[in-house]
């Protein structure tokens, strides 16, 4: 048993040494289930607003980047244990998350969240679906009389509402907009938009301030020359707030 473990460890070391290369690669972790921000396209690759943004940021920071998908639930634990170097997954900047990871400046302004339902629903006293561990889930917990139903992916929150398990869904408006448009009138926005979070930023390990500074500078340069606003308009819609 022990010999096997040591043997495997030794093997892993030799293998690791053999793969050593000189160029530096930054691994970007994303969820791949949150269109239009990030999703897996028909070819099986990461696509969407953050794919284009991330590639542009890497070009400006002069780094080679690779994309990794990870479950939303464990996306922060896998960052801090070093499985990838940054999170770029429509993650809103919140004080709770800032206790564990370090964010860059935001690359989208605080954008509204919204409720959708299959008809007119009275939100007080209803069952509302949201993705686990999001600012929307936290918001529903604080609503008077509302019951929170949590799902691991945003797609499942919409599916739960269609199946009648939940009365409404609370999510980013940018995510819900294509869902509403594609439902041919079945799903509609209800109530007022809710402003949540401080905008979306990239998250890094706290012990990695240099890399964070490089990406922070790249985001600033995209804000300065207006390319970020063009990208937001193209991928998130003309109505999505810009800088």
């Amino acid at each position: 048993m022990k010999k096997l473990l040591i043997g495997t460890a030794a093997l892993a070391m030799v293998a690791g040494a053999a793969f050593a290369e000189s160029h530096s690669v930054v691994r970007l972790g994303t969820e791949g289930a949150y269109p239009p921000y990030n999703f897996i396209n028909d070819a099986g690759e990461v696509d969407g607003f953050e794919r284009v943004l991330g590639d542009e940021l890497c070009a400006r920071a002069e780094m080679t980047c690779e994309w990794v998908t990870n479950d939303w639930d464990s996306i922060i634990p896998n960052l801090v244990s070093g499985n990838y170097d940054a999170i770029i997954a429509a993650m809103s900047i919140t004080p709770e998350r800032e206790e564990v990871v370090a964010f860059t400046q935001n690359y989208t302004p605080p954008s509204p969240s919204a409720f959708v339902a299959m008809g007119d629903v009275d939100l007080s006293g209803s069952v509302i679906a949201a993705q686990t561990g999001t600012i929307q889930a936290a918001h529903v917990t604080g609503m008077d009389g509302a019951t929170l139903l949590e799902y691991p992916t945003p797609d499942e929150t919409v599916a739960a509402m269609r199946a009648g398990e939940a009365d409404a869904v609370l999510s980013d408006k940018d995510y819900l907009l294509p869902v509403v448009e594609g439902s041919s009138g079945e799903i509609m926005f209800i109530g007022d938009d809710v402003p949540l979070g401080g905008g979306i930023g990239m998250a890094f390990r706290k012990s990695d301030p240099e890399m964070r500074a490089k990406f922070d500078a790249a985001i600033q340069s995209m804000k300065d020359d207006g390319t970020l606003n063009e990208m937001i308009a193209e991928y998130l819609g003309e109505d999505s707030p810009a800088f």
């Binding site: 892993a12 690791g16 793969f19 801090v80 070093g82 012990s207």
Partner: peptide
């Protein structure tokens, strides 16, 4: 804190290894 930090050379697989290695 909650970060697990080892030196770059000790990363497994190395941080700059190709995706398939990971």
């Amino acid at each position: 804190g909650s970060d697990f930090v080892v030196c770059q050379a000790a990363k497994l697989p190395l941080g700059n290894a190709a995706q398939w290695v990971h």
